[in-house]
Design a protein around this nucleic acid. Structure first.
Lengths: 329, 329
DNA sequence: TTGTACGCGTTATCAG
DNA sequence: CTGATAACGCGTACAA
């Protein structure tokens, strides 16, 4: 007893397959015709086959969202926003994890040629020539959430890291903290380079020198902890900015272990303003880089491009804001 | 300039489409034949179309994982484990969010009939007759991560909540805490009922009476905070067990706000042993309900059933363990 | 308005 | 070992 096909429905309804298809797709048909088809569909429990439909119409009505690490809460925020937009447009969202290696990302982008989905929304953590090339030549529309050279010729939505850094530094300075250290993620990543540059600029605009700059091996909680000892041995800081919330929370654990109080002894600022910022203790002051909005805008861009692949690529920059919580005085 | 098809490759290579297909699928072929095909493929940049392939072979090589809330870190753990197993088996993982309503879950299960994926791994938060029926009648193999009546006739992997509760209570009692309160999630959910039952049993086995039982409106951080005031106004407890880590962390925030120290004044135990448990401050003692193993086992069950749909449904129970951290004395 | 027939790109069957 | 050809299930020109 296999699945009923459109032919079976047509037979039961005593009409042609074409008529069944038209009724199901809402094309004009007689009242009676529609009624007969509906009844046959209900009787057989017929459901159109997405596989066959995809082949015929050349679309899967699936969109792929590729992120490096589902464990990073910032992606949860983005994912939610993307989900909302694409499902409202009748698409299903396929979430895949790429891992930290560029080659995996390149493989993913090239794999889109198989037609698994109608579009790709990717947030690359590292970018190289191969990836840019793969993106430019990708068979399906691509939108990048993050930075990528404009020669990739692709729609882009990115955060304004320098501006975000400035918000963080402004805030700390206004609270009387001037001995500011920084824990970055890997400097060879897209967000890593942006944050490093932003931090340097922000301090310069205040005529301050960085007290210390650490580089974690990853944008994770564990890496944040691991990066702490080096920072602590340097000392001399009364505030630390971290490249994301996970690093900040990891650091705060080590600060506590070292007997330092947040924010009395050391103020801590994170970036991303993810759910973790609110959940951490003390709640973390964090730069909101607009993850939700970036997700939303990126999804909209992707839908628009699927609609019309000839439009000129747009590059959107989402402005940051600061969510002040108790980790700063 | 459209995508090259297998016919184009055949033409360029000067062979038949059948031969191209066979070479690509590793079926026996002459050395020379293979070579010609490979060259033509490389020259044209041919990539097989997954849509057409799906239609022909009746498989998409996609598996769907449906969870209620991607923001719950316990699902991150599970997702990682599932990802690992299915990708090793050559499948792609499609992660979708169902939301808290049963109707959404039912719609999702029924929608599988469209053939989007070859199997479904679902972790339902609420279960009713409709869902059981939908699962039993689902067109593709289904594995449930959680509890579902055996009449659903489906493979199941679930946690042992009562045992987990017992571990938590044993631990608290061994540390001298006997005035134990409990914050549950919604009692009309699958985990909610299991936790409630387990808590009652565990206390009874120690001849203890519960000091207070609260019910949060959801398994979230915000709900944990919201449930705290009622508990605090009751008072009289020196330990609280929470139905999951998010609730526990939410509660700890409110305890701190009320001037209570963890674990000195109140010990707190969470459940799920998610990444958040480690990241919270103080680090949260949590019952590890084996999310990773449940994910792994469930994925294996799903693959096995896809392989042979006639095997009798298995019901696996994963045993819990306790991760002791600093939120308990 | 309705029905017939074909094509989407691939794999599997069956002759050669 | 290779080539021609028939499905897979659906949508849609085209003809009636």
């Amino acid at each position: 007893m296999s699945r009923p096909t459109i032919a079976g429905v047509a037979r039961v309804a005593g009409v042609s397959v074409a008529s069944v298809s038209r009724v199901l797709n809402g094309l004009p048909a007689t009242e009676e015709m529609a009624e007969r088809v509906q009844r046959a569909v209900a009787e057989l429990g017929y459901v159109p086959d997405a596989r066959a439909r995809s082949l015929k119409v050349g679309r899967t009505f699936q969109l792929t969202l590729a992120v490096a690490d589902v464990g990073n809460p910032v992606y949860v925020t983005m994912m939610r926003a993307v989900e909302e937009v694409v499902s409202a447009a009748g698409y299903r969202l396929v979430v895949t994890t790429t891992g930290p290696e560029v080659v995996d990302e390149v493989a993913l982008v090239q794999g889109m040629a198989r037609g698994y989905a109608d579009g790709l929304l990717i947030s690359p953590i590292r970018v190289d020539e191969d990836l840019v090339k793969a993106i430019r030549e990708c068979e399906v529309p691509v939108v990048v959430a993050g930075s990528v050279p404009s020669k990739a010729g692709v729609d882009t939505v990115r955060a304004n890291s320098p501006k975000g850094m400035l918000l963080a530094v402004d805030h700390l300075v206004s609270r009387g903290r001037q001995r500011i250290a920084f824990i970055n993620g890997p400097a060879d990543t897209v967000p890593g380079t942006a944050r490093a540059k932003g931090f340097a600029e922000a301090l310069r605009s205040h005529n301050l020198d960085p007290i210390a700059v650490g580089e974690a091996t990853d944008f994770t909680f564990a890496a944040g902890r691991a990066a702490a000892p080096a920072l602590l041995s340097t000392g001399g800081f009364d505030a630390v900015i971290c490249a994301n919330d996970l690093l900040a929370v990891g650091l705060m654990h080590e600060l506590a272990a070292a007997g330092l109080e947040v924010p009395a002894d050391v103020a801590v600022v994170g970036m991303d303003d993810s759910e973790l910022a609110e959940q951490s203790f003390p709640p973390l002051t964090s730069v909101n880089l607009g993850s939700a909005e970036r997700g939303r805008r990126a999804a909209e861009l992707l839908l628009a491009r699927i609609d019309d692949n000839d439009r000129t690529p747009r590059r959107i920059i989402v402005q940051p804001s600061l969510s002040v919580r108790r980790s700063t005085p």
